[in-house]
Design a protein around this nucleic acid. Structure first.
Length: 285
DNA sequence: AACGATCCCTGTTGGC
DNA sequence: TGCCAACAGGGATCGT
């Protein structure tokens, strides 16, 4: 699923395509994709003829700074991907939004499950949106152990749930949360408030390390339905995952079979030896 | 306030 | 072989 490394790879690919370019026209073919706008019809209207000055990212949100203080917001949801193509090239199914850029370049938003969205927001609308509630970007502004500890203090919820909470830290999703916890040797079911200073330090080391590793390898493409780079290539990180999706397979660190359980309503994978459920105990959770 | 449950979607998977 | 329920998940929202 698109998480921070996939969104960042998408962003880097799109920077030379979009930055400084004029969006000549835009089509929203499924109204649902524009549902975060007060009026869905605003999207093409607000994009038409406007230059995109800078393409940034906060967590899993792509943020395009447009002329006259408008922001283009794109979230890939769980099955969204952006595809760069020439006009007239065959379209992938579920091409729900198309941006027509300079020349005959198109940026196509393909999203079968429509959990993604596009929005074009004024500064006021942006301030009122959930964007303003996002926590610091997990890569650009990685947490220090003391600040993460302060956010986790007193929390009974599983540390996995807290890592997925975009208001605490922005960018981790289900795959990279499992990978971060594995690298840091922290059991996903542990109450957030119970982590030791050493475990908080390990988490803070693991968060940027795992994300940078994911970015370096082009992100994680689980299957052909999910995330692909904007030129259609798959990311290479799938084969490097240590925990996520590896139920019954050997932990790359100790060889113990990875276990799976539902934590925080999400499929969760960990090594019962490297990530014991209680300090000093080596058994399964 | 914190936390868990539910819903939105649809392609894929697994069971019978 | 064919059908269909279950499953996957980010984020909004709701109930406790």
């Amino acid at each position: 699923m698109p998480e921070l490394p996939e969104v960042e790879n998408t962003r880097r690919f799109l920077v030379p395509v979009l930055e400084g370019s004029v969006i000549r026209d835009a089509e929203v073919r499924r109204q649902r994709m524009a549902r975060r706008n007060l009026r869905p019809d605003d999207v093409p209207e607000r994009l038409r003829g406007r230059r995109l000055e800078r393409l940034g990212r906060h967590g899993k949100f792509l943020l395009g700074e447009l002329e006259r203080d408008l922001t283009l917001v794109v979230h890939l949801g769980m099955s969204g991907r952006l595809r760069v193509a020439r006009a007239g090239e065959p379209e992938d199914p579920h091409t729900n939004v198309v941006l027509h850029v300079d020349g005959d370049t198109e940026v196509r938003f393909v999203d079968p499950r429509t959990f993604g969205f596009v929005a074009v927001l004024t500064p006021d609308e942006r301030a009122d949106s959930s964007l303003s509630a996002l926590g610091p970007d997990a890569l650009l502004d990685p947490p220090r152990p003391e600040t993460l500890g302060a956010r986790f203090a007193g929390r009974a919820a599983a540390v996995k749930a807290l890592l997925l909470d975009q208001r605490i830290l922005s960018g981790l999703g289900n795959i990279y949360a499992d990978e971060v916890l594995h690298r840091a040797r922290v059991n996903p079911t542990r109450p957030g408030g119970s982590l030791s200073p050493a475990e908080l330090r390990a988490l803070c080391e693991a968060i940027p390390a795992v994300l940078e590793d994911g970015i370096r390898h082009g992100g994680t493409s689980l299957d052909d339905l999910a995330y692909l780079l904007p030129d259609g290539r798959a990311g290479e990180y799938l084969g490097r995952l240590a925990a996520y999706g590896r139920t019954g397979l050997a932990c790359p660190r100790c060889g113990t079979p990875i276990v799976r359980a539902v934590v925080a309503q999400r499929s969760t994978h960990w090594c019962p030896v490297c990530q014991p459920s209680a300090i000093g105990m080596g058994g399964a959770a």
